[in-house]
Design a protein around this nucleic acid. Structure first.
Lengths: 350, 350
DNA sequence: GTGAAAGCGCTAACAG
DNA sequence: CTGTTAGCGCTTTCAC
């Protein structure tokens, strides 16, 4: 037991060992005092607290995590953090999590399945306590199934995955779209175009199905040239809109499946000199700031965006706490907000 | 707080030990083969790879981090992740970081100094490799100074802190505001109102200074009743606008210091029946989607938002790599985008 | 009440 | 080339 003095690193962080030494107790006692469990003498506890304070001790979370096998972190994998919908959800999750002393690690998949797989691998390697994911694809989801199988708490949002045995929070995409198209049909529209998105499959597919069902119920044919597949960006939606509306026998109405695409459609229509709703009626899925700034304002299918993050977080925390009831699937209803972008169309003309 | 109840049964992950056993080598050899350093025999390497593959081995990043003293994580503390400006920057940082195999942990301060301090403490305890922060306050920044002192790589964005010895990426707020007010003055405006924000101090203060300098240079007095202090939310900006414009001797022009406030001003003006630019000319700091959707479109001071995240990330990675050149402060110029929200005003009438 | 000691999973000297 | 060994900082039996 010669000199045990470890060579003082210049900026070495202070550890329990340092605190224990300063308080003249063992590391075990110091740890007990610091974390407030087990028996610790009042006097010793006081000395430890004082030493910790004086030295500026902060527990090393990595060591704690290694010991306990888990990081106090929850992972969130949105499709695109720049989409205001996901930004809002991220904010709400973060706020809800803060109360339970977890940090939120946000890693956007950019709607890429491959990227999502890599991200989840990372998150898994970090031993995060749980994950909230908006799956980028309906295709190969073995990576998600594996998480479920391994018992990693997982909540899906925005897009559900048929057969996946985990909690999910979504909205009634099919019903919302159906209602929107219904309004268009009731206003006399017969040539109703759709711009949807091939990547956010679950969501976009359901919205497309709502569109198709509404047409079918009205005895209207679903025509290929009325449907454009785009991507969820303003730029792609502009192209799609131009494609759709530069043909003869222009559609009289347009339905877009998310706010970025609605934005693109608005821009494209304006550049083509088509006025809403005089020349084209428009309904977008997902409400957004811009919708009330146009003249007239845009009619939209609104989602209860403020409820999704908090509920998903609540579900996840319950799972983390060990709940093992069967998977719950919550589907919020949507709300059609009629503003001024739908015009009545003459039957004869249509 | 919220201490977990029964620890959830997560299936035990496979470790190097398992892989080593399966490949019939020692843990050290397995580690070498897996991480590709040191000498490993071809045959052994192959067996290890095969075993790892078969068992689904993923390195435990927590253990690695404990060993190496650092997590492959970078922290980002924006003022508000819902602000499109920060959402864009977050996306860009994330993308830039991915190439260097780091994860991004986003924790919004909600513009609260206290929250920011807590967040940085957390991040520090996680031993993240570095942080990118938009400081919530110009006031007490000992927590940031401490990080710098302790050698934690740190880059400030959007708001600089006088005297802080770390890299920063900002824009020329003062110059941008000065140019905007100059345009208003050149158009004959004399009663030019300002809505600024007390919390995002550095940024808002500089924009306010640009406003004051432009007025002074034109020999115009800075009147208190033309300046409203608000907060960076749509709601607060609405109130401030109504306050400003319900007095007699209404301002003929308005300058708002960020896009959320510009949105609020637009909403308030419309509700008061004031048309832009007929009744009020308007210029906002920070370009945003909405600015091109109004009729006429809004004149703005645009920031090079796409350059901020990548540059900040580049600087941070250099610091992480050990660069110790003196603190660099990059300030991007702004660009005045003249659209249609500024009208000429009669000198006699003003 | 308190301390000694055993690891969590991993990496890196240092010997063979 | 490969195995042995020693911790990183922390928590938690298990003795005393």
């Amino acid at each position: 037991m010669a000199e045990d003095g470890p060579p003082r690193a210049v900026k070495r962080a202070v550890t329990v060992k340092d605190v224990a030494a300063a308080a003249q107790v063992s590391r075990a006692t110091a740890a007990r005092a610091l974390n407030g469990y087990g028996y610790v003498g009042d006097e010793a506890a006081r000395r430890v607290q004082e030493a910790a304070e004086r030295l500026g001790y902060r527990g090393n979370r990595i060591a704690q995590a290694l010991r306990q096998g888990q990081m106090p972190i929850v992972g969130f994998v949105p499709g695109d953090i720049q989409n205001p919908f996901f930004a809002r959800v991220a904010h709400d999750i973060d706020a809800a999590l803060r109360r339970s002393r977890h940090s939120l690690l946000i890693a956007s998949s950019d709607e890429s399945l491959v990227q999502e797989q890599g991200l989840l691998d990372n998150l898994r390697a970090l031993n995060v306590r749980g994950m909230i994911v908006a799956p980028a694809s309906e295709g190969d989801n073995r990576h998600l199934a594996r998480l479920v199988r391994e018992g990693v708490p997982l909540v899906l949002i925005d897009r559900e995955l048929p057969g996946m045995e985990c909690d999910s929070v979504t909205v009634d995409n099919e019903g919302g779209a159906h209602e929107a198209i219904g309004l268009l049909i009731a206003n006399g529209h017969r040539r109703i175009a759709l711009i949807h998105d091939a990547s956010r499959i679950a969501t976009a597919r359901q919205r497309r199905e709502g569109y198709l069902r509404a047409l079918a119920e009205a005895g209207l044919p679903a025509e290929d040239r009325l449907i454009a597949v785009s991507q969820s960006t303003v730029e792609h939606a502009i192209d799609a809109t131009i494609r759709l509306f530069s043909r003869p026998e222009r559609p009289t109405a347009l339905f877009t499946v998310d706010s970025l695409m609605t934005t693109g459609a608005l821009l494209a229509l304006r550049s083509m000199g088509l006025a809403v709703p005089r020349d084209v009626s428009l309904i977008g899925f997902d409400d957004f700031d811009l919708a009330t700034f146009t003249d007239p304002q845009i009619t939209v299918v609104a989602q209860p965006v403020g409820q999704i993050g908090p509920l998903a977080t609540k579900m996840l925390l319950e799972r983390i706490q060990g709940s093992d009831e069967p998977a719950r699937h919550v589907r919020f209803p949507t709300r059609l907000i009629a503003r001024g972008s739908v015009a009545r169309v003459d039957f004869g003309r249509a």
